[in-house]
Amino acid sequence: MKTINEVLDAAKKARGLDTDYKLSKALEIKPGHMSELRDKKRAIDNLTACRLADIIGCDPMQVIAIVELDRAKSDEKAGFWRNFLNQRFGKSAASVALVLCLTMTAALSGFGEGSGSNLTAKVASAAEVVLALLVLTYLTLHNIHYTK
């Protein structure tokens, strides 16, 4: 998501809504404000940004930063928010691929070692490791924190 319109569309998709009118009801804003938000004639306030983030399932600061970037009047401010988004939320496909490759290498290392080893047990064990690391990678990439 890079623009306000992409955020709004993601929220509609996440809720299974087919109109901006229905999204406005979910966000508890006036229906007429939706077109103003899309046309950048009205700024999304922080409460609405937090509601959007909750619907989409992302960090509210990501939506707030997108709003700020979209309404930045100077190159300096736009640059600040672009860098903020990239540093805090920009995850490249290459880094994800690298993590997955390292995960698979770590999980599958040692397959052929030892005589009479049970290949089925090793495959199951490797699958558990890969699954656990994939879950951790997903949580990290989506900025989800687990607390007891």
Rank of each mutant, 00 (worst) to 15 (best):
V135I: 12
D9R: 04
D45R: 06
M1W: 01
S35E: 01
A14V: 04
A121K: 12
H142M: 11
A53H: 01
L85Q: 06
G112Y: 07
D18S: 15
P31C: 11
T120Y: 06
G90R: 02
E68P: 02
R88P: 01
V135H: 04
Y21M: 08
L108V: 08
M61Y: 13
A127R: 05
A94K: 04
N118W: 03
D75R: 08
G79P: 09
A93Y: 13
A65E: 02
L136M: 12
D20F: 07
M34H: 05
D70C: 15
L141V: 13
S95P: 01
I144F: 03
I4W: 00
A106V: 06
K77W: 12
L102C: 06
S95H: 07
P31Q: 14
M1F: 04
D18E: 15
S35R: 04
K122D: 08
E36Q: 13
G116L: 03
A107R: 01
E6C: 01
R88D: 10
R38C: 00
S109L: 10
V99M: 14
E76Y: 13
I56M: 02
M104S: 12
A53L: 02
K13I: 14
L134K: 15
M1V: 00
L141M: 13
G16K: 05
V67L: 01
L69M: 15
A26W: 08
D9A: 04
L8Y: 13
D75S: 11
K25T: 01
K148S: 09
K22M: 11
K40Q: 14
E113D: 11
E113Y: 03
V7C: 07
D59C: 12
I66M: 04
A72R: 08
I44S: 02
N143A: 07
V96S: 12
T105N: 14
L27W: 04
A53K: 00
T19G: 05
A72Y: 12
M1H: 02
L134N: 15
A72G: 09
K12Y: 07
F84H: 08
A65P: 03
C58L: 09
L133W: 05
R71I: 11
L131F: 06
R82K: 13
D20N: 13
L108F: 11
E113I: 04
A126N: 07
A94F: 01
S24K: 09
Y21E: 11
N46I: 12
M34I: 10
A10Q: 05
D54W: 01
A106I: 09
Q62A: 10
C101S: 14
T3V: 05
K12G: 12
M34D: 07
K2A: 13
S125D: 07
S115M: 10
E28L: 00
V63T: 08
A78K: 15
K41D: 10
